[in-house]
Each structure stands twice: as C-alpha cells, then as structure tokens.
C-alpha cells in the first residue's frame, strides 16, 4: 500500500525546512499519522489553504520506508470558515485538536473517535455553545473508558447528596466523603446528559455558572488523564 487514500483532520503542523510542513493528521481509517506536505508554505503551492489545523480533507498519502508519509494530493471536505475568522472559536477548536493529538495512538484506526472530532468541529463552526469543548472532552474520555463516574459516590456508593468531584478518585463524591472540586446538582445533570446520549439538550444550556463548573471538571479530567495541561484552553484567557 505505497499510495493510499483516506479522510483526515489536520491536528497540528510544524514548519520543516524551507517551505514544507510536517502534519499530524487524524485519519478515518489509519488513526493518527505524521506526514510531510512538501512546498505547502509557498504561495503557489497546489495544497493552498487545505492543510492547516482544523481542515477536514480527503488526502492521498504515500507511505515509504520512513516513518513520515508524504501527502501527494488533498481536497477539502469542510473548510470551517468561521473557525478562521473568530480567534476564540479557533482557540476552542485548537483545544479539541490538542487533546485528540495526545490521545489518539499512531496508526490505529478508530472511526468513532474520528467522527466525534469532525462532528464537534462542524458544530463549533455552525452553532457554537459554551459547553461544546467540555462536552467533547467528556465524550472523548468516555470513548477511551476514562469518563468520571457520576451516578453514585465513588467511595461509599451513596446516591445523594452528591456535592463534589475528585477526578483522582474517579468521579463524584457525597457530602460525607467530599473532597476535590465542589459541584452543583445542575452541573452534574448536564454532565450526565452529555454522557447519556442527550448531547443536543445539554448543549442548549447557557447558564454561565453551570457551564463554568462543567468546563472546570471536564478540563480537570482530561488534564489528569493526559498528565499534562491543555495549553489551548488557557492562552486566550490571559489577554
């Protein structure tokens, strides 16, 4: 399979040499791969703006003997115009790409993970919601089997009152066992909706306090499991 085609989302790019770039791609059929796009930084490159982070493309790749594959052709599937024109949405998209880049193993296809990322980018492009990124974090963790447990106290199995979340402990805690981050009943309800297949309803929530709580828990969870901080989540906050 020297030459093959696949669909992919560009996760991250690094400059290489004079005019090339190395791309981290999440492909539909081959998991995460690293590939070189030759000449992509030249103004007359045949790839144009198709191989930038967030781009969803149909690519032809050449797999040689080296670890790095070569992109030989690329066609756009989605261009996500609003992600390019809104720096805040670009930062949110970057957070999702950053987490997927860390989580997705190389060379191991996972259609579900790929579809989740493409779906989340499309939603962010068309109908953004303050809960989109945290919901994506929770869904991705759940897909890896790492979602926090939210139905009963992870220490004593009590089902109420559930008042805190400690990611290190594995999930929610009751009043008696409380430690970690305090969390409200509404925020727990939103997280259960996200993980229980009611994503669309959960994304309708706009209450800033609830969104803030869910965001904090989801970011904690993803950073705990990745064992590093999600940089994209913080850079726009400083300004």
């Amino acid at each position: 399979m020297a030459l093959y085609r696949d669909q992919a989302v560009v996760l991250h790019t690094w400059k290489l040499g004079e005019a090339d770039r190395i791309l981290a791609l999440l492909t539909a059929g081959h998991g995460q791969i690293r590939a070189v796009a030759k000449g992509v930084r030249k103004t007359r490159s045949k790839f144009g703006g198709r191989l930038e982070p967030t781009c969803h493309v149909d690519v032809q790749l050449h797999k040689g003997r080296s670890d790095l594959q070569i992109v030989t052709q690329a066609e756009s599937l989605d261009t996500f115009a609003t992600l390019r024109s809104d720096p805040d949405r670009f930062a949110e998209a970057s957070a999702m790409l950053e987490v997927v880049e860390r989580l997705a193993p190389e060379g191991e296809g996972d259609r579900r993970r790929y579809d989740m990322l493409v779906g989340a980018l499309r939603t962010l492009d068309r109908r953004p919601s303050p809960l989109l990124v945290p919901a994506f974090f929770l869904k991705v963790l759940a897909h890896e089997g790492l979602a926090p447990s939210l139905d009963a106290c992870v220490r004593c199995q009590a089902t109420e009152p559930l008042v805190a979340v400690d990611i290190g402990e594995g999930g929610v805690l009751c009043d008696g066992c409380r430690r970690g981050r305090p969390v409200s009943e509404s925020a727990l309800a939103v997280m259960r909706a996200v993980l229980g297949g009611h994503l669309a309803t959960a994304l309708e929530v706009e209450d800033a306090r609830v969104c803030g709580e869910v965001d904090a828990v989801a970011t904690d969870a993803v950073e705990y499991h990745l064992e590093r901080r999600v940089r994209s989540r913080r850079v726009m906050e400083q300004a």
Binding site: H12, P87, E98, E101, S232, V235, Q238, A239
Partner: peptide, 15 residues
C-alpha cells in the same frame, strides 16, 4: 502569531 496549541496567545506577542 496566535497558535493556542503551541501555547502562543496574545500575551506572548508584542501587542
């Protein structure tokens, strides 16, 4: 330029 994934935000530029 702003590149959140590389940890470069407005504060890291001479804005």
């Amino acid at each position: 330029s702003i590149s959140p994934i590389d940890g470069v935000g407005p504060d890291q530029l001479r804005i």
